[in-house]
Design a protein around this nucleic acid. Structure first.
Length: 491
RNA sequence: GGUGGCGUAGCCAAGUGGUAAGGCAGAGGCCUGCAAAGCCUCCAUUCACCAGUUCAAAUCUGGUCGCCACCUCCA
């Protein structure tokens, strides 16, 4: 079955047919860097990470662009309020660019920890002011925008497609109910492309309309066009950005370029925490560092830190297009599930270490596992179903390795390759180095203790053998006796 | 109020017309000096509820109830 993707534009799954295969242009709305990344970011970027990985695994040459927003989004609404980065810079007494730098680095650290592939291009909004001004001019020239008092607004009524992504008819988008209407706008639904800056506004740039700064939505239209062209294949982002952000992007891009903007719109659904919406205003968001960074204070809800891959497993255990409730229990279950996967892979790797060229074949239908996995992923990137296939393979593989059959190196290599390809390359859950083992010294000491225990057991000195094992357990180290010898891991 | 989505076992979660994947938790067994890990067996006659279409529905249609998201900063 060929890849099917759910396209928000059509509200249905459809076959994925890129503009110029095998090339795929993909743009995902990146973070506004004014705070540390939270679970919402984890879900979104993890989802698109696996989407990119699957596209590449199946042969597409993906150019993955993800912006870094370091200016322009306001605390309030499109027309009033303060730039969030400037607000944070005031709180911390740092220059806005220092804030952007600080949280860009924080973001990248978190994403690296979770094993995300870096996007091919990560353009900054402040690095693309000329492109944004040019787009603004284009829209003015085409009659889609107008200038008032040094600000430029998009004329929503001039673009008939406005509302096609979010399913809103333009008449329904009644602004003014909650947003104070600015007198200078012709229509309350019009949105800012360029805002005139007060003299004291720190982040401002010269423009044909005077000193100012770009509006909310402009950067994504300008930067996606620069790096992916006026029409490209995939645009991803969080569901909450569907309206108004993505709707406005479409208006800007199609208004300026007069050709379709994006072929497939993909939206990931949201994170809740203990059943409640996670939001800035609720103050209940859980940071990625809360969960995985050992140098960060422990979150009271969690009590301890987790391997970053546990978080990855947790997110991938639900579909990107369904809501995910974040709970301590869920994280615990994810940790156990991930361990099961890692145990199975570890078993194969240990067997591989002492495998010989001769030996039995595995007798498994590995092609069958691969094709079932592909079927799940090809159905709108169904990671949960793909994971289930991997667990079936775990059972089959464990069973085989515990059965006493001596498998040939080639047979073990083949099993290992499936775990590596599907669990590692595609899902990013199987690292080259399994997390159970420590450094060289640690492992050396463990081998010493394991050898001493082996001697004790050989001499039937079970009291000593148990003492070693029990005291290690208290230290958080678990010993496992297998037919290939004793291994250890952190509890 | 407008728009969109969801409701599957104790929990998480696949499945979108052909007779309920997988994970966690739980029970029993095997293995083990004892464990741990692993393996085997069991764990939803049933998919919020009510009608309807069909040989056949968790899957389609209509209705009811409940939950959520967006419309306002958020991934």
């Amino acid at each position: 079955m060929a890849l099917q993707v759910y396209n928000t534009l059509r509200r249905d799954k459809e076959p994925f047919e890129p503009l110029a295969p095998p090339r795929v242009g993909m743009y995902v709305c990146g973070p506004t860097v004014y705070g540390h990344s939270h679970m919402g970011h984890a879900k979104s970027y993890l989802s698109f990470d696996v989407i990119v990985r699957w596209l590449r695994y199946t042969g597409y040459e993906v150019t993955y662009v993800q912006n870094i927003t370091d200016v322009g989004h306001l605390t309030d609404d499109a027309d009033a309020g303060e730039d969030k980065i400037i607000a944070e810079s005031r709180r911390r007494g740092l220059h806005p660019m220092a804030i952007a730098e600080l949280f860009t680095n924080s973001y990248l650290d978190d994403m690296d920890a979770l094993g995300l592939l870096r996007p091919d291009i990560q353009p900054r909004a402040t690095g693309h002011i000329p492109e944004q001004i040019a787009l603004c001019q284009e829209l003015l020239a085409k009659g889609h925008a107008y200038e008032v008092n040094g600000s430029v607004y998009f004329d929503v009524k001039s673009f008939e497609g406005y509302g096609k992504l979010s399913g809103r008819r333009i008449e329904d988008v009644e602004s003014g109910a909650r947003v104070a209407v600015l007198d200078e706008k012709r229509d309350p639904r019009d949105f800012a492309l360029w805002k005139a800056a007060e003299p004291e506004h720190i982040m401002q740039w010269p423009s044909p309309w005077g000193a100012g700064y770009p509006g909310w939505h402009l950067e994504c239209s300008a930067m996606s066009a620069k790096y992916l062209g006026n029409t490209f294949d995939i645009h991803g982002g969080g569901l909450e950005n569907q309206f108004p952000h993505h709707e406005c992007e479409i208006a800007q891009s199609e208004g300026a370029h007069e050709q379709p903007f994006v072929r497939y719109w993909l939206h990931n659904h949201m994170i809740t925490v203990n059943g409640e919406k996670m939001g800035k205003s609720k103050g209940n968001f859980v940071l990625i560092k809360d969960i995985v960074n050992p140098d960060w204070p422990t979150h009271p809800m969690l009590g301890r830190k987790y391997d970053p891959l546990v978080l990855r497993f947790y997110v991938l255990s639900s579909h990107y297009r369904s809501d995910l409730d974040f709970t301590a229990e869920g994280l615990e279950a994810a940790e156990n599930g991930l361990r099961r996967l890692h145990t199975a892979v570890g078993l194969v790797r240990r067997a591989l270490e002492r495998a010989a060229d001769d030996g039995a074949d595995h007798g498994l239908d590995l092609a069958g596992f691969r094709s079932r996995f592909a079927e799940a992923m090809d159905d709108d990137f169904g990671a949960p179903g793909a994971l289930a296939v991997l667990f079936d393979l775990c059972r089959a593989s464990n069973d085989l390795l515990n059965s006493g059959t001596r498998l040939s190196r080639a047979a073990l290599d083949e099993i290992h390759a499936v775990f590596n390809d599907l669990g590692g390359t595609v899902l990013g859950l199987v690292p080259a180095q399994l997390p159970q083992t420590g450094g060289d010294l640690e492992d050396g000491l463990m081998q010493l203790l394991i050898a001493m225990r082996r001697t004790a057991r050989a001499e039937k000195n079970f009291a000593l053998a148990d003492q070693i094992r029990l005291q290690l357990t208290e230290l958080g180290v678990v010993l496992e006796d297998t037919r290939d010898g004793t291994s250890w891991r952190r509890a």
